[in-house]
Design a binder for these strands. Structure first.
Ligand SMILES: NC(=O)c1ccc[n+]([C@@H]2O[C@H](COP(=O)([O-])OP(=O)(O)OC[C@H]3O[C@@H](n4cnc5c(N)ncnc54)[C@H](O)[C@@H]3O)[C@@H](O)[C@H]2O)c1
Ligand SMILES: NC(=O)c1ccc[n+]([C@@H]2O[C@H](COP(=O)([O-])OP(=O)(O)OC[C@H]3O[C@@H](n4cnc5c(N)ncnc54)[C@H](O)[C@@H]3O)[C@@H](O)[C@H]2O)c1
Lengths: 221, 221
DNA sequence: AATTTATTGTTAATTTTAGAACAATTATTG
DNA sequence: CAATAATTGTTCTAAAATTAACAATAAATT
């Protein structure tokens, strides 16, 4: 049974927060606590738990370790997935460095570039190869996820190489919207859109979302 | 009248694409063309146009220049908004460099850090100041948007300084969810969440969104 | 051990977002 | 200039996401 995209995003966020709680020695957490830490509502948390088929001992809150495990068993692949970063300029390098070691089940196993300054070196902690080797290495290293951080004009051709060589998911940071075959999951993000959204609401609202200040479940703790 | 967040995001994306079309000498565009370039449906485009109160000469498509202007008049502030980046490590530097010059109405006027290697220098094309000067300079430079790229442990305190000194919108790239007063618009993004979403769907679906392959409006052109 | 309190799981209601359908309109064609 | 074709604006419908409401349950309190 497949979970909604929004729920999956939240599970990832829950896990980040739960790991933090765990490292501080906390063992259980109530729905409204997890909600507060994430700035969402407790109902939403409980609903997500329900969707993923997770339940707690009533009145004790959710067992943090178990919950982390449950989220992991949904998101992670037991043997991990291999990831490649294509284009390691300023942004690609920052991304690579940021990911490294963050999730043991997602391994950035190679980066690719055309720049002879980078090819053959270690960039952001990972070996950089020339893009000419991309098709070969994608298969050899069993890479199933690609992160695109090349200049916009190369986005389409690189995406094609990825999908032609077994990649099943792409995280596209270029400004070029891609059109992927149905069997490839595509996630796109452009921070210009984010900042323009902020700008719009700063301009038209003096900042601030809606005006949610209702007294519900969520205002507890 | 306030537009839905999703519509605002799309307007930003439309503008990016339209600017590209304009630079290629195109003067008009049909709803289905704009939709195809963005990989959404034509209805959605027309609906967004309706929401923003924009209309075309029927049968000629939308006037690209006019549309860009209309989007600008909604998103942009005539005199522009000033933006600050807090924390110019790998990621902050990449972000600063990426934004610079991308939108003339959003000016990154200062960056802030604690590292003496950076303070006083120009980082990513913008002067870097010591965070100690943050309160003073936020007011002096009339900064209304802050981009947070500091290490997680400083996110909360930096956000507080921002909101205490007139900032009305925050783009938070740290892994710490923030709790903002109602009058501040907050946008958060973490790429770990994005990649884990990709991982989930690669694992549970062999990639691929839903399975939308219906013959509608959108399949034209 | 009865009563109160806190918290969950779930259903129902609401809101938000997207899609389908189609009449109205304008260009193009014969 | 009538008929046809293409495209929009909008209404009506559908789906997705969120929130509210509440019964069920288990702990805590008396
Ligand atoms: N989505 C976002 O939020 C965001 C933020 C910053 C940058 N970006 C995008 O990321 C991309 C890179 O930005 P940047 O600031 O790092 O630019 P950059 O110029 O610093 O880096 C681009 C890198 O790609 C390499 N490259 C060029 N052609 C290539 C190819 N065919 N195959 C592999 N590598 C190739 C270059 O050698 C360079 O190292 C751009 O498309 C930019 O728009 C996106
Ligand atoms: N959201 C994302 O997609 C994403 C991606 C990469 C990094 N990040 C986040 O961005 C942040 C920075 O990441 P990075 O890779 O650039 O790390 P980094 O260590 O390279 O940079 C951090 C910078 O912040 C400076 N700094 C430290 N304390 C400060 C303070 N109190 N005020 C101002 N500046 C201060 C440091 O001197 C350094 O220059 C982290 O929180 C990281 O989690 C987010």
């Amino acid at each position: 049974m497949i979970l909604p995209e929004k729920t999956v995003s939240r599970l990832s966020e829950y896990r980040r927060i739960l790991l933090d709680c765990l490292s501080k020695g906390q063992t259980h957490i109530f729905s409204h606590e997890l909600a507060n830490l994430n700035h969402i509502t407790a109902v939403q948390v409980r609903r997500d738990m329900m969707l993923m088929g997770f339940s707690s001992m009533q009145r004790k809150g959710y067992d943090i370790k178990e919950l982390i495990g449950a989220i992991g068993s949904l998101i992670d692949t037991p043997d991990g997935l291999n990831v490649a970063v294509i284009g390691v300029g300023n942004f690609g390098k920052a991304v690579t460095g940021y990911f490294r070691g963050k999730r043991s089940k997602l391994n950035i196993v190679a980066t690719f570039d055309v720049d002879s300054e980078k090819v053959g070196r270690v960039v952001g902690g990972v070996k950089c190869y020339h893009v000419d080797n991309l098709p070969k290495l994608l298969k050899k290293l069993k890479i199933s996820i690609g992160i695109l951080t090349v200049p916009p004009e190369y986005a389409r051709s690189m995406a094609e190489i990825l999908t032609d060589n077994g990649v099943k998911g792409i995280l596209n940071f270029t400004t070029v919207p891609l059109n992927m075959p149905d069997h490839v999951f595509l996630e796109e993000y452009d921070m210009i859109t984010s900042i323009e959204k902020v700008a719009y609401f700063v301009k038209n609202h003096g900042g601030g979302k809606k005006s949610f200040s209702k007294a519900t479940d969520a205002s507890k703790q």
